[in-house]
Computed example of a mutant assay.
Amino acid sequence: MVRLGWVSSPQSTLSALKGGVSTEESDENLDRLAAEGVVGSINLGSWATRQLTRWKALEDGQRQLVAALDLTPAPSTLTPRPATRRTFAETVQFLELFLHRERRAPAARKASTVDGDTVKIGPWFAKMRTKHRAGQLDPEHERLVAALFEGDWTAKDPAPAFA
Rank of each mutant, 00 (worst) to 15 (best):
R129I: 06
V145F: 00
P73W: 08
G135D: 08
T91E: 14
A155C: 01
V66L: 15
A67V: 05
Q51P: 05
H100Y: 07
R86V: 11
T23D: 09
T87C: 08
R50Y: 13
T72H: 09
A147I: 06
A57H: 14
I42P: 04
P139W: 02
G40Q: 12
L78I: 07
S22N: 04
S76N: 04
V119Y: 11
Q93P: 03
S22D: 13
A108K: 05
E150Q: 03
G45D: 03
G135M: 03
P139Y: 04
E150P: 01
H100P: 03
E96S: 10
L148T: 05
A105S: 02
P80I: 07
G151W: 02
L30G: 02
S112G: 09
W47S: 12
P123A: 03
R50K: 15
N29A: 13
F98G: 00
G20M: 12
L148M: 04
A146H: 01
D138P: 04
T87V: 01
P73S: 05
S112Q: 09
L33S: 07
I121C: 03
E150T: 10
H141M: 14
I121P: 05
E24V: 11
D60C: 06
K131V: 04
F98D: 04
I121G: 04
A108H: 02
E102W: 00
K56D: 15
R63D: 08
T72Y: 12
T118W: 02
R81A: 15
S46G: 15
E142K: 06
H100L: 10
K131G: 11
R109V: 04
E59R: 11
K18Y: 05
E102P: 00
E90W: 00
T87S: 15
N43L: 13
L58D: 05
K127W: 14
F94M: 12
T118M: 13
V92W: 02
G19L: 10
V92D: 03
